[in-house]
Design a protein around this nucleic acid. Sequence first.
DNA 1: GAGAGGCTTGAGAGCGCTCTCTGGATCGTC
DNA 2: GACGATCCAGAGAGCGCTCTCAAGCCTCTC
Lengths: 343, 343
Amino acid sequence: MAEQTTGARPTLEAVAARAGVSRATASRVVNGGAGVRAPLVDKVRQAVEELGYVPNLAARTLVTRRNDAVAVVIAEPEFRIFSDPFFQEQVRGISRELTAHDSQLVLLWVESPGDHDRIARYLGGGHVDGALAFSLHDEDELAAVLRRAKIPTVLGGRPTDGIGPAMPYVDCDNRGGAREAVRLLVDRGCRTVAHLAGPRDQTSAADRADGYRDALGDPDPALVGHGDFTAESGARAMAELLDRRPDVDGVFAANDLMASGALRVLRERGLRVPEDVAVVGFDDVASIAERTDPPLTTVRQDIEGMGRLMVRLLMRVLNEHGSGAPAPDPLITPTTLVRRASA
Amino acid sequence: MAEQTTGARPTLEAVAARAGVSRATASRVVNGGAGVRAPLVDKVRQAVEELGYVPNLAARTLVTRRNDAVAVVIAEPEFRIFSDPFFQEQVRGISRELTAHDSQLVLLWVESPGDHDRIARYLGGGHVDGALAFSLHDEDELAAVLRRAKIPTVLGGRPTDGIGPAMPYVDCDNRGGAREAVRLLVDRGCRTVAHLAGPRDQTSAADRADGYRDALGDPDPALVGHGDFTAESGARAMAELLDRRPDVDGVFAANDLMASGALRVLRERGLRVPEDVAVVGFDDVASIAERTDPPLTTVRQDIEGMGRLMVRLLMRVLNEHGSGAPAPDPLITPTTLVRRASA
DNA sequence: GAGAGGCTTGAGAGCGCTCTCTGGATCGTC
DNA sequence: GACGATCCAGAGAGCGCTCTCAAGCCTCTC
């Protein structure tokens, strides 16, 4: 009781004393109790309860070298991705899988360039076991920070090539999914299939564009419009495309948002979907694809599953860390075509 | 160099050896170098550089009992607030102020009830110096977790009364701001001023409703419509209100979003703003208030500033922690009326 | 009934760091 | 030139925990 009234937090020592056992035994009980006889386990548990004992994580970390915590690093320009359902779903997957591994998610937000030092110190200082980050670019300072901190890292989305030595990543089969989407359009009789591409500097967009070309052989470059994954950019690209090639009868959009923009423009121009122009999107974000008019046929990727895979991959890296094992291969998840009314 | 190739991270001991000084001196240099002669400072700095030394935070925390990290705890139902500009701005303020205090922001996300234990362990385990949380409710399990973890906490937004012993919080002068808004309407000649109230279980909404009543004496209860801070609810409440009291000529909405919904309904019914009905909102979120038609007169609160204040208040609590000082009073920030065209 | 072998438990070292305390060098003063 | 005051550096004691190792106790087997 005295221990409770003094502000000082009780230590394992205090628990051991109260339970009448050694610190070692108390420690064993606190960590699961394997190899300790039942009556002692109970005594220690009771002492923990009475004292309100909570292990000092810093002390534990100091000796085990584990934190049971993983950082998710977000750079400022991407902070808006919080409002992005794609990202929310991925973080949800990460969070759930980390919980399953008894690890804590620590979200680090890099706001200004000045923050890089602080983040590097945090990551390098051993507060977390590993880090997760998203779609790194060549110019990305974050990539350098991560590397400098020498912390096991797994990425979401394939990084651009210039990023340096391979970092393990999880991505979906963007190219294969795109191919399948375009084939669907061709199979249903479309003769002039266009592509509304995403930002050129993002590998996911580039890979989807490659898949489009794969499926079509050597399509007319005029059939490719460019946007930035937003609905507005999809609408604009669609409008320009129709001006260039009024004969277009199939559209593969780089994501659902752009597809929704395209649908709007098609409707405005009096074109029927899918009778006059068939449309396929990518992502299958429920809040978009199911609510467009008509509902969107799209390429589904298991976003939450990818988040979970990132964690599992990181755990593997963590286990192999120091064993001299090579960096694991990237994990590419399959996509599935979800057929709704738009194609 | 040998130290670099072995996977083991260099310790202070290694730095000291390389620089030819004691561990104590090396430590002093790493922590600022006060009281160490220049030549030695240089030698140590160089050794740090060559070895790529990074202090082990766990070891440091173990002795200093400081983490230089603060948790921001978000409960799942509120996760959507990520998309809320209000919240983003507040977190931005928090982040900036923490940086100024050389502290790290750690975002904890409570997803399922099962997470509470884990979060409590994390908070209680001494990974962070303090915690920030938002608008707690009576039934909020999070409040209990925070209290159980016995961790210095500051809240954003006044908690409901049932929350137990006072926790320090930062809030704006909701009641005073509301009063001012209503007075503006009265002063400009409105004779029948209505209020579109927010959710009853949120103190900010309740306080604004109180301010409305303060300014009006004893207004007809039929003049108060109810919503939930969304634009749709504002539209609905406005429509119902017009049906009940077609003579309304002034509206004070509990927030900008509800005001925007109200504006839409007024326009649909052919009522001119502000000529027929004057409207005032609350919050002054730029992305809403400046873009309505007409631009919204509203009560401005300094959201980023409130985030910063939360951190400063927490730092004060941290400094006084254990000194037996009483919990500090809440910080109430003033509001200002921003006059645009709607009133 | 004695020795081998398996379980439990406790003692104690040590994780990497900070910080107090002490000793020695340096400076100023008369 | 001697003394006290001042400054700087090092020694060493922990912070709270885990984990190895050895000792003690049983049980089992021949």
